[in-house]
Simulated scan of single mutants.
Amino acid sequence: MEDMTRSRTITRSVPWLLWLGWKNRNSIMYAETQESTERLLRDMVDEAEQWFKLNNVLTPDIDGRACLQSGDSWSPPEEGRIKCNIHANWRNASLHSGIAWIARDHYGKVIHHTRDAIVNAPNRLIAEIRCVIWTLTSLSDLGVTNVIIASDYNEVMEAIKLPLQWPRYRALLHQITKLKENFVTITFEGETIQTNGIARDIARSVLRDGRFQSYLALGGPSWLQDRIAREETRSRD
């Protein structure tokens, strides 16, 4: 944890790795269930990031100053394009999944944001693909023609770019292929959990706060305005 050559995300996540490992052990022993390693590691990073955000803890760099590590800052699109960060908050096949997207211009200014709830998603990848379909449909209806779709879930990005390697999801991926025809330019990019944090928080609010009513709004949500403003400022630096 004191090795400053490693990324901040890794060094400060160690306690959560131990804690989630303990929880997984109890699930195996007493509930006969086990989460996937991938999901556990994602939860670990997510839990650590949320704790540090809520407690406003700053991690000093080698010179003793608090700073953003490379890749920790949301990056805007080039001028003339819209960047749309998306997320599907999938818990399990029995619960609703919260989905959300937030679209910003090259200044980092929020154009629109929206959230909704979906049902009957047997796994996270299907929830994420359905989130992409919903996002593309919404953007097309709004007249957006040049867009970047950004997600921190690498598998959905890979499935969209190489659909033939994901035959199990062929029908859903075909819908995305057809929707792409509605755009002049469309790019799919990977994000880190940190840089996709605002979209993640909007999606999580669906289940956390029982906000199952879908909506589309201009600008960003009021309860995230401070973070949106910080990311907008950084994007202009």
Rank of each mutant, 00 (worst) to 15 (best):
L68I: 01
V184G: 11
G220W: 09
L41T: 11
D3Y: 04
C131E: 06
I176R: 05
Q165A: 15
R170P: 01
D237T: 08
T233I: 10
M157Q: 14
S151G: 02
S7M: 01
I198C: 00
S138T: 04
R81Y: 11
I111R: 12
I129S: 05
M157N: 14
I160M: 09
N89D: 12
L172D: 08
G80T: 05
G108A: 02
V184S: 14
Y153L: 10
S235V: 00
W19N: 03
N196K: 06
S7V: 06
L207C: 13
S214Q: 15
D152R: 09
M157S: 10
M1T: 12
A217P: 01
L207N: 14
V110M: 00
Y30A: 03
N55R: 14
D141M: 03
L40T: 13
D3H: 03
P122F: 05
F183L: 08
N56H: 10
R168H: 14
D141I: 00
G71Q: 01
C67F: 01
D61P: 03
S235G: 00
R8Q: 13
M44V: 15
A31M: 06
V184E: 07
S36H: 07
N196V: 05
I28H: 11
S70Q: 08
R39M: 03
R91E: 08
V147K: 15
L95C: 10
D46G: 12
N182C: 04
R211Y: 12
Y215Q: 12
R12F: 12
Q50G: 05
L58D: 03
D43N: 14
N182H: 11
D72A: 05
T59N: 02
M44K: 07
A121Y: 05
L142Y: 08
S151A: 03
A171R: 11
L68H: 13
E155C: 13
N196E: 02
A93E: 12
I198W: 03
R130S: 10
A31T: 00
R25E: 00
P60A: 07
E158M: 15
D226V: 14
D105T: 04
H106I: 01
V119N: 15
I62G: 00
E191H: 03
E231N: 15
T185L: 09
Q50N: 08
D3F: 02
Y215N: 13
A127W: 01
E49C: 04
D201C: 10
M44Q: 04
W19Y: 15
S70Y: 06
G108W: 07
S27D: 10
D43S: 06
